[in-house]
C-alpha cells in the first residue's frame, strides 16, 4: 500500500503528518524530499544502511567519433554541444536517457554511471539524499520507488513539479496537506489538479486549522472534495515540532493522529 503525502505549498505540515501517521499506522516512512530531507529529525535512527544512486552519463570515444553531431541533435535536454573538435557534456543537465548513445552511428558513446545522491535506510525508514549542486531529484525518488516493497507513507517534496509526479508513481492514495491561508489554498488547488490528472484518489488534511477560519472548508465543500481531517492549531504542537519531537508524544495529538489514521485506513480500503 503506497500512501503519498503532498501539499503544493511548502511548510504546511507534510513531514509532521507523514512521520506521526507512519507511527500510528505502523507503516514505513519514505522521505522523498531529497533536496532537503528532514523526517529523520523526528524518527530517530541509530544505524543506517546506505546505497548510492547513479545516473548514466555519456562518455565519448574520440578515436571512433566522427563529429557528425547526431548525439547533440538527439539530446532533448540540451546537455550536449558540438564545438570545433569535440563534444561537450554538461553532466548536470543530462537525464541519463541514453538517446545519444542510440543515435550515435559509429558506437562511440559509452554510458558511465555518475553518483548523484544516496539512499539511507533501516527498518521502516528510507531517506533519499540528493548531492549538493545536483539539480535533478527524480532518479533518487525512482530508486526509492523501486526499493520500498512494504506498506509505506511517501513524504513528497513541496510543489507540483516532476519530483512530486515521480513520488506519486503507483500511489494508492494521496493526502493533500494544507493550511488556512490564501497561499495554502492557492497551492492546494494546484495539488488537486495534479492528483486528479494522475487519477490518484485523494483526500485533504487541513493543518493548523482554526475554528473561525473557513477558507479550506468552504473550498472543499464547493468542489465536493473529501476533507478528511482538521488538525487544530496549537502552540504546544509547534514547540514539539521545533524541538524535533513527534506530536503523538502529546496525548491530545495522539488521539488526533489515531483518529486521522483510522479515517485514512477507511479510504485506503476503498481505494
Amino acid at each position: 500500500m503506497k500512501l503519498v503525502v503532498l501539499s503544493g505549498k511548502g511548510g504546511t505540515g507534510k513531514t509532521t503528518v507523514s512521520t506521526n501517521l507512519s507511527k500510528v499506522l505502523n507503516m514505513a516512512y519514505v522521505d522523498c524530499d531529497v533536496e532537503e530531507p528532514n523526517g529523520h529529525i523526528f524518527l530517530n535512527h541509530d544505524h543506517v544502511e546506505e546505497k548510492e544512486v547513479f545516473l548514466l552519463n555519456p562518455e565519448f570515444d574520440t578515436t571512433k567519433c566522427t563529429m557528425c553531431g547526431q548525439c547533440v541533435t538527439s539530446c532533448q535536454f540540451n546537455a550536449l554541444a558540438k564545438v570545433l573538435d569535440r563534444i561537450m557534456l554538461f553532466p548536470s543537465l543530462c537525464h541519463g536517457c541514453g538517446a545519444c548513445s542510440l543515435a550515435c552511428p559509429v558506437d562511440a558513446i559509452m554510458e558511465k554511471p555518475r553518483t548523484i545522491g544516496k539512499i539511507q535506510y533501516q527498518n521502516q525508514f528510507y531517506m533519499g539524499i540528493l548531492n549538493i549542486k545536483e539539480p535533478m531529484g527524480g532518479p533518487v525518488i525512482s530508486e526509492l520507488n523501486k526499493m520500498v516493497k512494504e506498506s509505506a507513507i511517501f513524504d513528497a517534496p513541496p510543489g507540483t513539479s516532476c519530483s512530486v509526479v515521480k513520488t506519486l508513481d503507483h500511489a494508492d492514495f494521496a493526502l493533500l496537506v494544507t493550511e488556512p491561508t490564501k497561499f495554502g489554498l492557492h497551492d492546494l488547488k494546484l495539488a488537486v489538479e495534479l492528483v486528479k490528472s494522475l487519477s490518484v484518489p485523494f483526500g485533504i488534511i487541513e493543518n493548523r486549522a482554526e475554528e473561525e477560519e473557513f477558507l479550506i472548508r468552504d473550498y472543499c465543500e464547493e468542489e465536493g472534495l473529501d476533507l478528511i481531517y482538521q488538525i487544530p492549531f496549537s502552540k504546544s504542537a509547534a514547540s514539539k515540532y521545533a524541538g524535533g519531537r513527534l506530536l503523538i508524544e502529546d496525548d491530545d495529538f495522539k488521539v488526533h493522529f489515531e483518529t486521522l489514521g483510522q479515517l485514512v485506513m477507511k479510504r485506503l480500503e476503498g481505494a
Binding site: V72, F77, N78, A79, L80, A81, K82, F90, L93
Partner: peptide, 11 residues
Amino acid sequence: ANQGAGIATAQ
C-alpha cells in the same frame, strides 16, 4: 526549452 537554452543558442 525546459533547460539548457543557453547551450542550444551557443550551438
